[in-house]
Design a protein around this nucleic acid. Structure first.
Length: 685
RNA sequence: GCGCGCGUAGCUCAGUUGGAUAGAGCGUUUGACUUCGAAUCAAAAGGUCGCAGGUUCGAGCCCUGCCGCGCGCACCA
């Protein structure tokens, strides 16, 4: 039995006791962990609520402590419960039978949490993340998006959900058009020349890096060094390119497609370094050419979700009424979906796409494989070509049609996201208002110190700010690959100093895992709505509350078991099982787990056993930082335990068995928690 | 102007649907490697939880007002 089951059992006991004693039906029973282990293993603050309900029902004022006393006797009946205390103003504190619980937990292979198989009939959840404009390299702000999304996917999977991961490719946007203008106007290049350039670029300036610089140069080209007439001619150039891309089937569109696809490939390479993968790349050009919008437009018109304005400043536009934002003189409250020139806005396209994700559009993409990962997983991409996917050896999954969609998009887009969600729910009310979730997060900004380090000159105004926003347009930002390279270099230096006996490949692999652990943890330890003011020292640290700290704890634990006899774990479990029948052994185990030192060991076990709870809570709250904190707390607990006890040298057989069991459970749970965060545990570090 | 978010230790941040003595990391000071790995551990110092009211057995958390900061409010994507 797992701890979670035991908790649920006790909650049921509280529920039936409340019904029996007071005739009150409790719908939700809160159970919490007491602030200090001396107070117990599980606390029910339920007496306070019952006191309130009794007063409401009968008018009788019953002190919470009196209620708690009555609940106490009911809970003490459970076999796993050693005793129950009433504490404070009326807490019901449960103390478990430590020896009994340890014997229940020991020797099992509990590490399978991260690979919990999805339940096949489970309705599918969709997570869209990354969605970087494919016109330049990814920066750390993009990585925050991808790491949050990928981690949340892992959390959902660990909680037994079926999940589909999508990456939206806006390959027809102005950003791509800008880079195309850069190639054709600034570089005067043809598609063949671009391909030749791409093939000849040095390793330290890959295609997406080249585009990064070109993109900023185009920005300057539009804005500076020319008279107004020339500038507006240049901007016309941009909109001509944009239209050509949208229309498709012309040389400009072909060139743009090459640029976008190459950038997507490079971005996927970057993400793969961080163990981030996708099931489907959904391209905007395909949404356009397969007429998803036309269908959505018809649906919206016939449902009366949008209306055609005949007068006012929005005359000729199709708008969606949006009353929650009161209109002012400057800003209308209605949201334009179709412009007066007949073109659709981004929001309109997004509604169509969101409908498809939820299986409510009545149209589908065509698909073809885009890339295969080493383990055989395939990321597919949408296409307009019919039957493109017919490859008998590669069965295609069914994409789309989820019951719930999480869009990982930064919180600046809260307003457009709200409109999309409302539009969708207005069209298909039966899916419910919570089918579209904006999984928002704050941006990664640069600290003034980071800017200085990057050699970025700041204006006086910017220097006074707490942080400076990154900008792809201005080329202001830390490229993801650069940061990963630097982390790997730093980690490699440490590994080389500590483990000269390892081969070059092993050292490099270890350094890579440490670098990934450091970066992923750094981006996950902040809650979603906290702005990360990026600081190199903090991000490059391997000490304190970091990924490597957590990895290190697991590595140390593993090294104990590498040195122990292979049968030690099973032998320890056997001895602990004996303790449940043999009263003398049982008393000794209780003694080892008692007292101040024993309570510390016991607390670690309790914490480790709360992994499922932590994952479930993380899935429900959609806050990956919760799990990151849990992993760190568990690692910290283990490091203390490690320091206090010598397992291999322990002479007391019973104590050794207890220590082995607790250390084994802890390392399994820690490894599992880290895996769910996308962090691996190296052999040595 | 309206909407959203934030304000907690010197700094960066947590704080579990309102719950017990508000917690971490970094930094500072001090101590611990002859032991299963010191990327570690222990100890100390550090708080008017922005301000003022309110709700109740109980508020960092909920409500109201104010102050400060950030973001958003396009026939841009």
């Amino acid at each position: 039995m797992a701890l979670l089951q035991l908790q649920n059992q006790l909650k049921e006991a509280v529920r039936s006791a409340a019904l029996e004693l007071f005739g009150i039906e409790l719908d939700q029973i809160g159970a919490e962990t007491p602030p200090r282990p001396e107070l117990g293993d599980l606390a029910f603050p339920v007496s306070f609520e019952l006191a309130k309900l009794i007063k409401q029902g009968t008018g009788a004022k019953v002190p919470p402590r009196t209620i708690a006393e009555q609940l106490k006797t009911k809970l003490e009946a459970a076999a796993e419960v050693a005793r129950v205390d009433v504490a404070g103003a009326g807490y019901v504190n449960v103390f478990f039978d430590r020896a009994k619980l340890l014997s229940l937990f020991a020797g099992k292979h509990a590490g399978a949490v991260a690979e919990a198989p999805p339940i096949p009939d489970r309705p599918k959840k969709m997570v869209e993340h990354t969605s970087i404009n494919p016109n330049k390299a990814a920066h750390i702000g993009h990585v925050r998006n991808a790491v949050l999304g990928d981690t949340f996917v892992r959390v959902l999977k660990a909680a037994g959900e079926r999940v589909e991961v999508q990456n939206y490719i806006d390959n027809t946007g102005v950003q791509v058009a800008d880079v195309v203008v850069g190639f054709t106007e600034l570089e005067k290049m043809t598609l063949d020349q671009i391909k030749a350039l791409d093939a000849s670029l040095p390793a330290d300036v890959p295609f997406d890096y080249y585009c990064w610089d070109l993109y900023t140069r185009v920005g300057v080209f539009y804005r500076e060094g020319a008279d107004e007439e020339t500038k507006s001619a240049r901007l016309r150039l941009r909109s001509d390119v944009l239209h050509a891309i949208e229309a498709g089937n012309n040389p400009t569109a072909e060139l743009a497609n090459y640029v976008a696809t190459r950038n997507v490939e490079r971005i996927l390479d970057t993400m793969e370094r961080l163990d981030i993968r996708y099931d489907l790349l959904a391209r905007e050009s395909d949404i356009l050419h397969l007429h998803f919008w036309d269908r959505a437009f018809e649906l919206m018109k016939s449902a009366g979700v949008i209306r055609l304005e005949s007068q006012g400043k929005h005359a000729g536009c199709w708008v969606m009424p949006f009353e929650s934002h009161t209109g002012t003189d400057e800003h209308e409250s209605d949201k334009i979906i179709v412009r007066s020139n007949g073109t659709v806005t981004y929001t309109g396209k997004d509604i169509a796409y969101q409908l498809w994700k939820l299986g409510r559009l009545g149209l589908d993409f065509n698909y073809k494989p885009f890339r295969s990962y080493p383990d055989g997983h395939v990321a597919w991409v949408t296409t307009t070509e019919p039957n493109a996917e017919i490859l008998p050896e590669l069965p295609r999954p069914n994409f789309g049609g989820g019951v719930k969609v999480y869009n990982v998009i930064d919180s600046r887009q809260a307003y457009p996201q709200e409109i999309v969600a409302r539009g969708v729910v207005a069209l298909v009310p039966e899916i419910g208002a919570d089918a579209s979730v904006h999984f928002g997060y704050e941006m990664v900004a640069l600290s003034p110190a980071a800017c200085t380090e990057l050699g970025i000159e700041l204006s006086e105004e910017d220097r006074a700010r707490p942080y400076i926003e990154m900008s792809g347009r201005k080329g202001l930002g830390v490229k993801a690959d650069d940061l990963i390279d630097r982390l790997e270099k730093d980690a490699l230096k440490e590994v080389e100093a500590r483990h000269p006996e390892l081969s070059t490949d092993e050292r490099r692999a270890t350094a890579h895992e440490i670098a990934v652990g450091a970066l992923r943890y750094f981006l996950l330890k902040f809650t979603r709505n906290s702005v990360i003011a990026f600081d190199f020292n903090e991000a490059l640290s391997f000490e304190g509350e970091t990924g490597p700290y957590c990895q290190y704890a697991a590595v140390r634990a593993n090294s104990i078991f590498r040195k122990l006899d292979e049968t030690a774990i099973e032998a320890a479990a056997e001895l602990l099982r004996k303790a449940t029948t043999d009263s003398q052994t049982g008393a000794r185990v209780s003694e080892v787990l008692g007292g101040e030192a024993g309570t510390e060991v016991w607390s670690l076990l309790m914490l480790a056993e709360r992994l499922e709870e932590a994952i479930a809570q993380c899935a429900a709250s959609a806050e990956p930082a919760n799990l990151a904190k849990y992993a760190f707390t568990l690692a910290r607990g283990f490091n203390l335990f490690y320091h206090r006890h010598r397992i291999i040298a322990e002479e007391d057989e019973i104590k050794k068995a207890v220590l082995i069991a607790v250390a084994d459970i802890t390392r399994q749970r820690l490894t599992s928690a880290l895996a769910t965060l996308g962090i691996k545990v190296p052999e040595r570090m």
